[in-house]
Computed example of a mutant assay.
Amino acid sequence: MSTEIEVRPAVVFDDVRALVGPKRDDASVCWCLSYRIPSKINNAMRGQERGRFVAELLEQGPLGVLAYRDDVPVGWAAVAPRADTTFARNRKIPRVDDLPVWSVWCIRVRPGHRGQGISHALIQGAVAFARDNGAPALEAYPLDNGDAKVDQTMAYAGLRANFEAAGFRWAADTTSVLSGHPRVLLRHDLAQP
């Protein structure tokens, strides 16, 4: 297996499904829709309806980025304009200013590929994707876990240290907490490399 990781826009349905879809067709798993669409719509969809909805979204364009190793999808990052997500109205994660920022809110690496730098590549890929699409800045809302262990299920928000290593800087505290860890608002100015 190659150690090279390539990050590309998430446009292939089967590859997106491999990272955020269910193992069983009738399962009502996230599909990374929780922050992308209003809660009422998200909570109403069940089973295969969720996958069909994602397929329709993909027809409009990428939903983020995927990391590949040897053409196999091994990682996912959800990236979109904040105004197009539920973060636009989220009371726990504040708006810093009126800049039309983008958000990266989910980092997922397939089991068997963790601890190999894929999340770092995904964050860099999210930065490049947002920049290429004209975003002036990219926000993240990771866990501020310090040295504490984080449950893998709740680590989807990413870890503060990983985002800071990619050039993100503190912009605000939040009142959001996941798995006992506070989340912070970090921002990467995309006018800067």
Rank of each mutant, 00 (worst) to 15 (best):
P100G: 04
W102T: 01
H113D: 13
S103A: 07
D147H: 08
Q152C: 00
T153Y: 13
A140L: 05
D132C: 02
P100R: 03
G158N: 10
V127Q: 12
L143Y: 06
V104Q: 15
C106Q: 04
G167D: 15
Y141S: 04
A140D: 05
N145D: 06
I123F: 11
I107D: 06
Q124S: 13
I118A: 06
L99N: 05
N133I: 00
R110S: 07
C106V: 02
I123Y: 13
Q152L: 01
M154R: 08
I107Y: 12
F163P: 14
D151K: 00
A126Q: 06
Q116Y: 15
D147R: 11
W105Q: 06
N162M: 09
D147L: 06
A140S: 12
E164V: 11
R114D: 00
D132V: 01
A135D: 07
P136Y: 11
A140Q: 09
R108E: 00
F129R: 08
I123Q: 12
P111I: 05
G134V: 10
V109G: 02
A128V: 07
F163V: 11
A130C: 04
N145Q: 13
A121H: 15
A166T: 14
T153M: 05
C106T: 07
V104H: 10
R114L: 03
A148L: 04
G117K: 12
T153W: 14
T153K: 08
P100L: 00
D147C: 03
Y141H: 12
D132G: 09
A121V: 06
S119D: 03
L138R: 15
T153H: 13
I123K: 12
A140V: 05
D132P: 08
A161E: 15
I118S: 07
A121G: 09
I123T: 15
